[in-house]
Amino acid sequence: MRVFPAVDILGGKCVQLVQGKRESATAYGDPLACAHRWIDAGADALHVINLDGAFGDAAKNADLIRTLVKDTGIEIELGGGIRSIEDAQQWLGTGVSRIILSTLAIQNPLYISQIAKEFGSDRVMAGVDARGGNVAIHGWQETAGNYISWAETFEQLGAGSLLYTNVDVEGLQKGIAITPVKDLIAHVHVPVVVAGGVSGRADVALLREAGAYGAVLGSALYSGKINLLEALEESR
């Protein structure tokens, strides 16, 4: 199983949010420095989110993210504020391994097919952000139907992988909810990366045993509650 340290960027700084709320941001300094910190500790992939993009300013942090992609040279999945075909094309052109489509995938599902046809399914990851079993969009402020039904639709349309984020536990550092993860994995045939609540070695073990392709480490990693080396060891 893969381990993806998160590098979430807001206002040019690496931050972590609680429950996706902007006002809850805790800053951890320069995103490039954070990226290299995790790479030096053994990470071979990163989960990068342009939070300014998610909050409506898609162009913000663009140069910084391009530099990060070029400077690190490792596998990167990128999300946040990708609201059009043009946005997707531009980000894929920077060399990121795959882009994460969340709100756009719900509002214009056929865009998944279009992007997958142009760049390949393996470069298209559909975001399944779920709260109470329903997909959450627009900064997790609205819901739009059952998360498993949407995941199956995304797969049928050509998404090569899924990012499942359990909004109910995201950022709380209190552990994962494994049942909805298992339910999702049982209904699809593409790799599933899981975010939200991964707070200890036991959570990584649960995800590995459930058949998850990857785990995103965010708030618990930055706070020191989970150790990257231990997570990497448990993922094997």
Rank of each mutant, 00 (worst) to 15 (best):
E209D: 11
V48I: 11
P5K: 08
E23V: 01
G196K: 10
G20H: 05
L92I: 09
G20E: 06
L207Q: 03
S102A: 14
V181A: 00
L206N: 10
I185D: 01
I74C: 09
V69I: 14
D129K: 07
D129Y: 04
A186Y: 04
L162Y: 06
E230F: 01
G139P: 08
G171W: 02
L46D: 11
H187Y: 08
V48M: 06
L101P: 06
A6H: 04
V216D: 05
Q19A: 12
I76E: 04
G29V: 00
K225A: 13
A116D: 10
I74D: 11
V216F: 02
D203F: 00
G81F: 01
F55Q: 12
W91Y: 12
E234Q: 13
G211V: 03
A144Y: 04
G145V: 00
A58N: 13
Q114E: 15
M1W: 03
V7Q: 10
G197V: 01
L10C: 05
D129L: 05
H36A: 05
L101E: 06
Y147T: 01
T165Q: 01
E230W: 03
E152R: 15
S223L: 11
L104A: 14
L232P: 03
S84C: 08
Y164L: 15
D44S: 15
Q141M: 12
H187Q: 15
A62G: 10
Q173C: 15
I100A: 08
F119V: 09
D71P: 15
A151D: 06
S84I: 13
L92Y: 05
D44A: 14
A220Q: 04
